Computed example of a mutant assay.
Amino acid sequence: MESIRSRTGVEVEVMDLHFQGKAGLIASYLIRHEHGAMIIESGPGSTVAALELELRKRGLAPHDVTHVLISHIHLDHAGAAGHLASYGAQIYVHPNGARHLAEPDKLLQSAARIYGEENMGPLWGEFKAVPEKQITTLDDGDEIAVGGVGVIALDTPGHAEHHLCYLLDDICFTGDVGGVRLQGSSTVIPPMPPPEFIPERWLKSLRHIEDQQPEYLAPTHYGIFLDPAEHLAELREGIDAAVSWADSEVSKADSVEELQENYSNWLYEWALERNLDKRDWPGHELINPSWMSALGLRRYWKKKNGK
């Protein structure tokens, strides 16, 4: 689905950022207003050219983007925020993520420890700092209103403590707390990177989303889905299954590498049982690598068990 209209007639356009040259992995959502356009999720610095191409295809340029709403500051969601800020856009983010946009060194160092320094450029490109005057923080229930369009922020931790969802009428943009689901699939896989994966808070955030009674969900990975109740139920089952696996298996692994391999094998088989098309697995691994979620599960398990 390339576009949809909200209950009040506001059009949302899906811009595919073609992460690593692959379609259908990272979406940036375009919402036009009377004075230009806002986007939800900038995508990474490595897809700036694709973002600008998608804007041009719609008769827009970077300087037409007035508002950039970021779900959280992980590089695949916020990496190009500084690039858009250089054209004048105001960047909206959770209070816990704001300092990392203004001073991204610590964020980049943390990502490099996970992905490897040699992979940072090819995967994520340049992360430009955002001037502090162009950062606006949002709390739960805050509204961004511009040019006849109003979007409400929802505080939704669990994947990360600095996570927001955004509600436009009956459409909820769910970032990563809405899980990863590729187009044409019913399988929803939770991304659980360290250090802030907290399933208890995540499940509470899913209830917060459900309380808004959205008709449509728009996760960043990827696209618009018309079955929010089924989607969130599937995601909840995935979180519970992963935590149960960790409770049983983390202590048995002799090394981190063995744990990662075991989790990847388990997740693949679990996903197939949940009707995942085998052809979709490489896409999931590219945007939501199971080896990284294994690290998040391990960190959570160790903290829970006082290890």
Rank of each mutant, 00 (worst) to 15 (best):
L168S: 09
V130K: 05
P195Y: 10
K133W: 00
I152A: 12
P190Q: 08
G141M: 07
G150E: 09
D170Y: 11
I198A: 12
S186P: 08
G184N: 05
G179K: 09
I171D: 03
I189T: 08
A129W: 06
E132P: 01
G158N: 09
G150N: 06
I152E: 15
I198N: 12
T137P: 08
H163E: 14
R181C: 11
Q183G: 04
A160G: 11
P131K: 11
K133V: 01
H208S: 15
F127P: 01
G150D: 00
Q213L: 07
V177D: 11
K128I: 00
H159N: 14
D155Y: 09
G147Q: 05
Y166T: 05
G148V: 01
H159Y: 15
L164Q: 07
G178P: 08
V188Y: 02
A153N: 06
L164N: 13
P195V: 12
F197C: 00
E210A: 14
I209P: 08
V151R: 05
R207W: 02
Q213R: 14
S186E: 15
G147N: 06
A153P: 03
A129I: 07
A153V: 06
M192T: 08
G178L: 09
S186F: 12
P214A: 02
H163N: 12
S185C: 03
L203D: 02
G125H: 04
C172M: 14
T136C: 12
E200M: 04
A153S: 14
P199E: 04
V146Q: 11
T187K: 04
H162Q: 13
Q213H: 13
R201H: 08
T136K: 13
L206S: 06
V188K: 02
E210S: 12
P157T: 05
E200W: 04
F173D: 01
R201D: 12
T156W: 04
G141W: 05
R207Q: 14
V149N: 03
P191I: 03
S185I: 01
I152T: 15
I209L: 13
T136F: 09
H163R: 00
V177R: 09
E132T: 11
I144M: 03
G184D: 08
S186C: 12
D169F: 06
I171N: 03
V180N: 07
Y166D: 06
K128D: 08
I144P: 02
G125S: 04
I209R: 07
A160V: 08
E196A: 14
D170W: 09
T137N: 09
R201L: 15
E132C: 01
H162W: 12
A145G: 00
D176M: 09
E200A: 14
E132R: 14
I144E: 02
A145C: 01
K204C: 00
T156E: 04
T174I: 05
G158E: 09
F127K: 12
K128L: 15
P195A: 15
Q212M: 11
E196W: 15
K204A: 13
D142S: 10
D155Q: 07
V130W: 09
E126W: 00
I144S: 03
L154Y: 03
K204R: 07
L138T: 09
P199I: 03
G150A: 13
R201W: 10
